[in-house]
Amino acid sequence: VKCKQGEHQLQYSYCLWFSRRTPGNKASSSNYEQNIKIMGAFASVEQFWTLYSHIARPCDLTSSSDYHLFKHGIKPMWEDEANKKGGKWIVRLRKGLASRLWENLVLAMLGEQFMVGEEICGAVVSVRFAEDIISIWNRTASDNAINIRVRDTLQRVLNLPPNTIMEYKTHTDSLKDRSSF
């Protein structure tokens, strides 16, 4: 995927993935890989909007669906080389907010608003029955200064109230308990 003439290049190119889990099925690496598919890739602002305008918004997805927007070359999996020492910030949202906040997060990531160098790997929106969950993945779970900056930027771009609970979970812990959240 390449930026074409006249388009506005992004700092990174990205892949958008979609997954849907059969409710009740415990996550495992093999069925996760089978259930995830690439929706498209883009390298410019224009290519992003073309893709984004043609896909369903999170609020129109059925439960147990996820969008994963990751830098090109990084699989949205805990085991990926870029992710395996990393973790993610998790924000749980009441129903009805996910589409708007997901868009805010995506625009902040594409526009390089996090200011943490190469640290950001990707972002995920998870549509569930009673709540929706937004998360942003970074490379180095052990770097506290980076993590605080990611958290503060997330809070700002999502315009979250100061009392919002934000959890950080390392992918090592996710692998141990086979659970994303």
Binding site: G6, E7, H8, Q9, L10, Q11, V45, E46, W49, T50, S53, N104, L107, A108, L110, G111, E112, Q113, V157
Partner: peptide
């Protein structure tokens, strides 16, 4: 090196560009 930074308003405006359709 230099990074390509876009603010939210710029990105939202780009949505209506002919190349974004």
């Amino acid at each position: 090196g230099t990074r390509i930074i876009y603010d939210r308003h710029f990105l939202l405006n780009m949505r209506n560009s002919p190349l974004s359709q």
